[in-house]
Amino acid sequence: MIVVLGVNFSTAQADITEKELEDHIIFLTSENKLGRYPGGKVNRKIVSYIIRDFKKSGIPAFNRSYKQTFKTKLRVKEGEEPKKEVKTWNVIGLIEGNEPILKNEYIVLGAHYDHLGMGGGPSSKSDNIAIHYGADDNASGTSALLEIAEKLMANKSDLKRSILLVAFGAEEQGLVGSRYFVENSVVPLSQIKLMINMDMVGRLNNENHVYMGGAGTFPGGMELMKELAPPLGLSPIVHAGSVGGSDHVSFYKKDISVLGIHTGGHPQYHTPEDTVEHINFEGQKLVSEYIYNAIMAVAGSDYKMEFIYQD
């Protein structure tokens, strides 16, 4: 029993399931999603899918609309002609806490849903012009977001702080969606106490390593993330700092505590070979439960939160 939590996880009414994680990733990596490039009809279909799933779980929009619209330039290799600016979206859901004062504080749980399209851009590690499916990067984080959101909503009565659920667009274009979010935040940034980012959480290895940066940016974060792991059989690699590489960076630059969580790199990263066949769904479920427990530890209690700068 982890005393710091003060939460009974056995009362969960909704389960995170391997099947639902897999179903989400199969949808997001299907051929007709063309690698989830920002802009256009395919982008709108993915946004609609995320919104439908939030609605299915009973998760309301923040401020009536789930969509936060922005425009982005598309990255090209040096020397290539610039591409036309496109419109895309962040998708935002809200689960309101119950404690009269603490419900005005927010935990952001985020993952980017976009990927590299047909490749060929500056981020692609392959010269092949082919669908870059992005099963791990970051259909895995998006599917975890939807499943954890469902479980949080089922256990809403246990929450003191509120949860903002954000599926970010255009991360692969330079963290554009998360940067837009913090520059146009739907709540005062001072009320966001922690941002947890999931980027590539589908490839848990045989040693059950979960990697994270930023655990030292809030009080007791290192200890908390280590304590939560053994009951799930996980072996966390916890860094106090090492904040870099994905959407949580945008929040850290605004003096907001962060956790950036992933299951490690692999040869298929940013290539057409990052496909659903490589996903460890049993492992992804464990990682999702781990993140859910971390959220409940902070949002389901009066856990002391303050920003701690890390070099």
Rank of each mutant, 00 (worst) to 15 (best):
M1T: 09
V3R: 11
N8S: 08
N8P: 01
F9H: 13
A12N: 15
Q13N: 10
D15T: 14
E20M: 10
L21Y: 10
E22I: 02
E22V: 05
F27P: 00
F27A: 07
F27N: 01
S30G: 15
N32R: 11
K33H: 15
R36D: 01
R36F: 14
P38D: 07
K41W: 02
V42A: 06
K45V: 04
V47I: 15
I50H: 03
R52V: 01
R52W: 05
R52P: 01
G58K: 14
A61E: 02
Q68K: 01
K71Y: 02
K71V: 09
T72H: 12
L74D: 02
K77F: 10
E78H: 07
E78G: 08
E80N: 08
E80G: 02
K83G: 12
K83W: 02
T88I: 07
W89V: 02
W89I: 01
I92A: 00
L94P: 00
N98I: 03
P100E: 05
I101H: 14
I101T: 15
K103T: 01
L109Q: 11
A111G: 07
H112S: 14
D114L: 07
G119T: 09
G121K: 07
K125P: 02
K125H: 15
N128T: 03
H132C: 09
Y133F: 14
A139P: 02
T142G: 06
S143D: 12
L145F: 13
A149F: 03
K151S: 12
K156R: 15
S157W: 11
R161F: 06
S162T: 00
S162E: 00
I163S: 03
I163W: 06
G169C: 12
E171C: 08
L175S: 05
V176S: 05
E183Q: 14
V186K: 00
Q191P: 01
K193S: 00
I196Y: 09
N197A: 13
M200Q: 07
M200V: 13
V201Q: 05
N205L: 04
N205H: 04
G214D: 11
G214N: 10
G220W: 06
E223H: 09
L224N: 03
A229F: 13
G233L: 12
S235L: 04
I237D: 06
I237H: 13
A240Q: 12
V243F: 07
G245M: 10
S246N: 13
D247E: 13
H248I: 10
V249Y: 03
V249F: 10
S250G: 06
S250E: 05
Y252Q: 03
K253N: 14
S257T: 05
L259A: 04
L259F: 04
G260M: 15
I261D: 04
P267N: 04
H270C: 03
E273C: 05
D274F: 07
T275S: 12
V276R: 12
E289W: 08
I291V: 15
Y292W: 15
A294E: 03
I295K: 04
I295M: 09
M296R: 06
M296N: 11
M296A: 06
A297T: 15
A297I: 04
A299V: 06
E306D: 10
E306Y: 14
F307D: 08
I308S: 04
D311Y: 07
